[in-house]
Amino acid sequence: MLETVEEARDALSSVGYLPGESTALVSFLAARLGKPVLVEGPAGVGKTELAKALARATGRKLVRLQCYEGLDESKALYEWNYRKQLLRIQTEGDAGWDAVQDDIFAEEFLLSRPLLQAIAETEPVVLLIDEIDKTDQEFEAMLLEVLSDFQISIPELGVVEAKSTPLVLLTSNNTRELTEALKRRCLYLWLDYPDLERELEIVRLHAPELGETVTRKLVEVVHMIRALDLKKPPSIAESIDWARALLLLGADDIDQSVLERTMSIIVKHRTDLDVVAERVGVKLSGEAFAAPRASTG
């Protein structure tokens, strides 16, 4: 599927994800070199979506591990199913010690969690480790074995080696500096907000029924809002939501009143709302809005 850079680009586009220059190249390299990719960027630029798109494009299953504070190996790697072990012990009360001991630490009693599941699949999967920056450093260290050698050591059982090489994506919102060791094992991809033309294509792809002029204006307004100093700038997903909302409302132009009625879709903080109403709303009412269009010609 991902034999050349162009193929990677086409495959991703065909499942509804328009990759930038570097995104296509890094996805291709990840598949080719079998290396995990560390994807960083502001919230809402499509980091998680990239993993889903890759899964769709390659026809692989997506295994997702959502990270949070205090995530540990029993939830990420594996856990022994002790109830089943107890049952096993009780049903064969008279068997020898060695036999039972060997028995209860077998794969049958292992509950596999996402990481083990990802490497144990016979068909290669796409493994998404989402928001890795939310975990502690200890957890990162634990990941290293999985990421570099695609194997997991279980003390009672030995080493479980990968039956297939998964395509691994780690995402981070950059709230914490990740360790050098982890970065060293990964390819690095920085995703940023797309430029005007590409976002236009993205919105068109997801809300094709919206009129051309409205779509363009919408994207221009979103870019204007992103240029302001906001607590949370609108993401790509939010511009798509906004496009769909406008479609439902049947709006054929974005003026001050439309913006004020619907801007809560793209701006989610009270102070941000004030700033946007003040700075962008005013612009929309005047004719000064014509200025940014010059750059598209």
Binding site: E21, S22, L25, V26, L29, V37, L38, E40, N174, E177, K183, R184, C186, L187, Y188, L189, W190
Partner: peptide, 13 residues
């Protein structure tokens, strides 16, 4: 891009 993905591992890098 190929060089960047392998050599530069943060936004600042």
């Amino acid at each position: 891009e190929a060089l960047a993905a392998t050599l530069a591992k943060s936004q600042e890098d």
